[in-house]
Amino acid sequence: MNKKLLIFALFAAINANAETVFVTLEKDNALAVMNPIDGTLLKTVPIGKRPRGIALSPDNKSLYVATSDDNTIKIFDAETLKQTGKLPSGEDPETFALSPTGDKMYVSNEDDSLVTVIDLAQKKISKQIKVGVEPEGICVSADNQWLISASETTNMVHWIDVKTQTIVENTLVDARPRFVTFTPDSSQLWVTSEMAGSLMVLDTKTKQPIKTINFAIQGVPNDKIQPVGIAIDKERKRAYVALGTANRVAVINAQTFEVEKYLLVGSRVWNVAFSTDKKRLYTANGLSNDVSIIDLESQTVTKSVGVGNYPWGLVVKP
């Protein structure tokens, strides 16, 4: 191979893979910045008290972090990590979702049984919607039709019409729903229930469950299986579900809903995120203080990277 071409190829390869993972560290009041390609922790940046929920704006320019004990959601420049603003999130913000268009943010207010809608351009609350007890999981469908709020103690998912911002329907789900996400085509809503140890797949049209997936792992007591974060690939071939204190990620065939494999990761695996090229999955492991890197082609855990105390959530910036 000619030298120029080799350099070009290398450059292209680096570029194609270059990405940064940001991890919120609940107990360190900091953000870990990780290079996932060589599996190194680049730096740790102080970010505010008890950071949990984290998201990137659709243009990847702004990073939003819920700093729960500061009672605010902070906005950072995703390049420099300098704070550029903050949002009126209500008390103790933990989880939030961005609209696909990036103009609105929806925040779960656990203590007040509310979902707060924030207009991001004006940085103001535009509406508060009453939901069930202890709303936690929250997401918006990719087609921007549905906002979903899951209440942990009411055991319901609330279907909120994005246009009218009112609840249209409520679906009872298994005990203590924690995390909700739509399939990329918006046709199904996937809900994990931490206490029941199950995953429910709801049909967006009927808003009723079409499948309940239960997990069983040899040598792990059932009450240790506490499903939380979910990642579903674009073609809806496979889904990956973090199983909390079972310390495993379940690999699910998203067409047949069969559990194909359990991958052993770190302790109390909480949230998960795909790499930009969807070839890897990163998991935040709350009790072992690391991030596991899973190679999705071979379905093996290739590396674990120590990041700091209580990693909670993560996002990948291309």
């Binding site: 049984s113 009453k130 069930g132 007890v133 209440s151 103690t153 009411t154 055991n155 319901m156 609330h158 609840i167 409520n170 009872l172």
Partner: peptide, 10 residues
């Protein structure tokens, strides 16, 4: 009060 928060939907 928790029951009735749920009860408003059921």
């Amino acid at each position: 009060s928790d029951n009735n928060t749920t009860g408003q939907f059921t």
